Simulated assay, not measured.
Amino acid sequence: MIDLHNHLLPNLDDGSQSFEESLQLALKLVEEGVTQAVVTPHHMNGKYVNPAGKINQVTAQFQDYLDQAEVPLQVFPGQEVRIHAHLIESIREGEIQFLDREKHYLLLEFPTAHIPDYTEDVIYDLKHLGVTPIIAHPERNHAIQKDPRLLFDLINQGCLSQVTAASLAGVFGSDVKKQALEMLDHHLAHLVASDMHDLGFRQAYLEEAFTFLEKELGPDRVRQIQEYARQVINGVKIKAPSAQVLPQKKRRRWFGLF
């Protein structure tokens, strides 16, 4: 199994805070069946700045650490980059780390509460460069939660998306779990990753998530999701079925007595 989104690298963001902790997180991923992981520290999210050069350096150090500890996990440099208006300039300046060597896939994070007005322009420019944005955890974005048609529009513009295993495990509540499943079922989401930060609340949940998906969507769909991850890491173009729009959530109406 391949994990495309996690915060294993030490001392770079709100994930692991030491090589020793990173080792424990890696062991947990291996326990859940992961053999390859793209490590994706936050970048330009208003708190953390982790350009590609720094990520590559720490990834190499961490791989050496894993090899010395005889942990059977291969790690590759990646990045969870917060969308910003000057993202294309950042790519040209070499600050952005893609999920694959061919630079076809980019893990793109939105602010929690909304989708910026310039998003469509940035995605257009990314596609023009031959880059497919993979939207991280859309099921946890408040704007998309309220109106899933926003995600439908993004997928139709050429994006893919990735839900968090913890969402499918119910960690963020039943509503998020239901919406994450619906996104995968309607091909609004294509990938499942751990977004692992620690061994507590933000652990991997991959085994639990895929067991749930196999029950709900069947083993063939699970194999497809896992194959998509392999295609991403190898820079192969994913040919996903057409997305199906989810209905907008109905607003609750309150009736008073007069």
Rank of each mutant, 00 (worst) to 15 (best):
S18L: 08
V38W: 11
D64L: 09
H7R: 10
Y65K: 03
V49E: 13
T59C: 15
L12N: 07
L12Q: 01
M44S: 13
N6S: 15
P72E: 06
L66H: 04
E31L: 06
A37F: 09
A52I: 06
Q57D: 11
V38H: 12
D67C: 01
L9S: 03
Q57F: 13
L66S: 00
L27A: 14
L27M: 15
A26S: 14
Q24G: 00
L4N: 06
Y65P: 00
A26D: 01
D67A: 08
N6D: 11
T35W: 02
L29Q: 15
K54F: 06
L23T: 05
H5C: 09
D64A: 09
F62C: 05
E21S: 09
E31G: 14
V30A: 12
G53C: 06
G15W: 02
V38R: 11
E70N: 13
A37T: 14
G33V: 05
N50F: 07
L25S: 02
Q17H: 15
D13Q: 00
I55P: 12
Q36V: 14
T40K: 02
T40E: 05
P41C: 05
A69G: 01
P51K: 04
H42L: 10
N11C: 14
L4R: 07
Q17G: 14
H42W: 05
E21V: 03
N45L: 08
A52M: 07
Q63R: 00
E20F: 02
G33K: 03
D14F: 12
K28T: 13
F62T: 04
E20G: 00
P41R: 01
V30N: 01
E70Y: 06
I55M: 11
Y48N: 06
N56M: 13
E20A: 11
L29K: 10
H42P: 10
L23P: 02
Y65L: 04
H42A: 07
S16K: 01
G46H: 07
L8S: 10
Y48E: 02
A69Q: 10
Q61E: 15
L25D: 04
Y48P: 07
N45W: 11
S22W: 01
Q17F: 12
Q57K: 13
P51W: 07
A60T: 07
S18D: 07
Q68A: 13
D14Q: 04
D64W: 02
T59R: 06
A52T: 09
L8W: 08
D64F: 05
I55S: 12
V49I: 15
K47P: 01
V34T: 11
M44H: 15
H43D: 10
